[in-house]
Amino acid sequence: MLKDITLGQFFPGNSLLHKTDARFKILILIAFLVAVIAAKSAWSFLAVVVVTAAFVALSRIPVKIVLKNLKPLIFILVFTGILNIFFYKGETLLLHWSFIKIYKEGLIYAGFMMLRLVCLVCGSFVILTYTTSPLDMTDAIEKLLSPLKALHVPVHEFAMMMTIALRFIPTLVEETDKIMCAQKARGADMESGSLLKRAKALVPILIPLFVSAFRRADELAEAMECRCYHGGEGRTRMKQMKSRFSDWAFLLLMMVFAVGVFFINGYGVRV
């Protein structure tokens, strides 16, 4: 059951988004997020939705997979929707029943909020997590943050920690699965009983998991030392990141779009 986790999974491919430099993708994503959050009117939301759809199409990742990953969000979506419908105070009253007041603006606002969330999640998935390998991503973060080195921020170490953490997620998931099976074989019951009982049932899984995580960390540290790892100082890369003209063009386009959204905000139904 743990193997079903797909949140933040990389799908190898050869689309335009896959080929775009990861550093640029992070910047593009930031521009995209600004646009999504800034959108206020019906027309700007339409633009945002169109751009999101364009990104999904560009990534060539099946729409089914993208939608599947919205599933865990359904609760949050519904929750925000309901909250906004009931608590938004507008001008045109639609329904008034004892203490419940529903305004037309509330309905529109709730719709916009839900749309915004969906665009945020779909956009960041296809721009970054689905189309960027974890290694490229940490490299890009390291590069983008490298100016902070002047302030003695250990940027390389952070990036290395992130790489290692990402690398070990599948390993630990597999390990957890194994330990769960082993304890179930000894009659451990993890699916029934009170909350306290279920929390207690986690002990036989968590302790072996921690023990093995520490063991792995020790082994990895030793292996790194054996290969003369000594931090980021003077370290070169096998894959050099090279920006191309298309990367710059892509980023520029996104920035224009983000600024454009602020302009379109003036038109159409708005809240």
């Binding site: 390990e175 194994k178 330990i179 099976c181 082993a182 304890q183 074989a185 000894r186 002990v203 036989p204 302790i207 072996p208 023990v211 093995s212």
Partner: peptide, 13 residues
């Protein structure tokens, strides 16, 4: 039906 997995020592807690 008792099942002993491969490398069962990692299940001790």
């Amino acid at each position: 039906v008792g099942l002993v997995f491969q490398y069962p020592e990692y299940q001790l807690f």
